[in-house]
């Protein structure tokens, strides 16, 4: 029995995509941290975040970020399962869980980004 017995592949594509998404994530994280934490006051509130999330460019950015991060994370979990879970039945079960968790949070994140419309932008106080 070898590693192909459960998934039907050797994982070489996952290995490759893990590196590609990793490189993208470094770039996206640099932008994310610069915008959110390094410039500005360090305080994050609705008034600064909402206009960004309302723009189609940032929605695209966030969607790419979400997809790459979730893929990278779930592919990472996949390898951990490869290393420590040895019974075929358990592997199939846990692989399914990994896919399910990834899908659920993908849907949650996509809904957050796509459906977002800002409200009451100029009427709320800056500190609650």
């Amino acid at each position: 029995m070898n590693i192909k017995s459960v998934t039907g592949d050797s994982g070489v594509r996952r290995w490759f995509y893990q590196r590609i998404t990793g490189i993208f994530l470094v770039v996206l994280l640099i932008i994310h941290f610069t915008i959110m934490h390094f410039i500005g006051t360090g305080e994050i509130d609705y008034q600064t975040v909402a206009p960004r999330l309302a723009s189609p460019y940032w929605k695209t950015f966030d969607l790419a970020f979400l997809i790459f991060a979730l893929y990278h994370g779930m592919a990472g979990l996949w390898v951990v399962v490869d290393d420590y879970v040895h019974r075929d039945g358990w592997r199939v079960f846990i692989y399914s869980l990994v896919v399910l968790v990834g899908a659920v949070f993908l849907v949650l994140g996509v809904l957050t980004i796509i459906t977002f419309t800002p409200h009451m932008l100029f009427t709320i106080p800056s500190k609650i």
């Binding site: 305080e43 509130d45 609705y46 949070f105 994140g109 957050t112």
Partner: peptide
């Protein structure tokens, strides 16, 4: 992802961010 998903309204968002 979970926290941001549940923060659609400005008041709640600023409360959590505060």
């Amino acid at each position: 992802i979970w926290v941001i998903h549940n923060l659609d309204n400005p008041i709640g968002f600023n409360k959590v961010m505060g």
